[in-house]
Computed example of a mutant assay.
Amino acid sequence: MTTYEKLLLENKAWAQEQKEEDPDFFNRLSSLQTPEFLWIGCSDSRVPADKITGTQPGEIFVHRNIANMVVHTDVNLLSVLDYAVNHLEVKHVIVCGHYGCGGIKAAMTNQDFKPVLNMWLRNIKDVYHQYMQELNDIKNEDDKTDRLVELNVKEQVMHLAQTSIIQRAWKNDRRPHLHGWVYGLKDGIIKPVLEVQPGDKIDPLYEYDNL
């Protein structure tokens, strides 16, 4: 049996188990999606949003990319954000990074990862540059990486607040709340590092008029 065939077999077993435990599970799931949360997380396979939060299918709308970035030219991210905020009307948007992130580690080096990945990691390098003095004062490399993980999450949350999508929802509906979290691979615990309330002041340069 190949590895992908094993996935299909496990899927059938899982579906059967769900129906035995809750006969109406799939009927309910197929007719309704009303998540309260949008989760912007890392693509790392060790950080599945539903598992680490103990939530069920339908409770979290998820977008994942390398190092949980909010890049203003990323149409994929922005379309997910627009749909979650304006159509699903989520109440919370969570950016969740994780300690030991490979994307963060890669961005801290001068290695050439070839054009596309270099372009993506450049966004993390910009965060490093912004906090260079603080980070360079940290001598332990693991501690420095962990701190950049936290700072990167904070910056991505602020990138959310700088979008017209979020600002318009804040003005019209007083939602969503924005959260920056970091997940610990070593202990499984999520650490909150930033919270931004609807309508909180941001740099006026990024504020939109006439929303």
Rank of each mutant, 00 (worst) to 15 (best):
K105G: 11
C101P: 14
A84V: 10
L148D: 00
H92K: 14
R122Y: 12
S164Q: 15
E134W: 02
I138F: 10
I124Q: 03
Y83I: 13
M119G: 13
K51H: 09
I104Y: 07
I60G: 09
E195L: 05
N152G: 11
S79W: 06
V71Y: 09
H63L: 13
V182A: 06
G58P: 06
R175E: 12
V71L: 11
R122K: 14
E195Y: 04
E59G: 10
P176A: 10
I138D: 12
Q130C: 08
R122W: 10
K125H: 10
K171F: 14
L77T: 14
I165Q: 13
I138R: 10
V95G: 04
P115V: 07
E195P: 03
V193Q: 11
P176I: 07
Q56M: 15
A169T: 08
H92D: 15
P115K: 08
Q162K: 15
Q130K: 15
I60H: 06
T53E: 04
L151D: 04
V127S: 10
D143T: 14
V157W: 09
Y99P: 04
D146V: 00
I66C: 02
Y128Q: 05
A106F: 13
G58M: 04
V157I: 13
V116W: 05
N86F: 02
N140P: 06
H63A: 13
E59T: 08
P176L: 09
D146A: 03
A67G: 13
W170Q: 03
L151W: 02
E150K: 00
E59K: 11
V80F: 12
N118D: 09
G54N: 00
Q111E: 15
N68Q: 12
I94W: 00
G102E: 07
Q56D: 15
N172H: 08
K139P: 08
N140L: 06
K171Y: 15
V90A: 10
H87S: 12
K171N: 15
K186Q: 13
V85K: 08
I52T: 01
E150D: 03
D74G: 04
Y83F: 15
I165D: 11
T109L: 01
V127E: 04
N118S: 07
I60L: 13
E134L: 08
N76P: 11
F61H: 01
V80T: 15
I124S: 01
H63E: 14
C101W: 10
E195Q: 14
T145Y: 12
V90S: 11
L121T: 01
D173P: 02
H179M: 06
D187K: 03
T73C: 10
R174H: 12
V193E: 09
Y83P: 13
P115T: 09
E155C: 07
K125T: 13
F113K: 02
L88W: 14
C101S: 11
N172Y: 07
Y99W: 02
Q156M: 07
V127H: 07
W181Y: 06
A161E: 03
T163A: 01
I124Y: 01
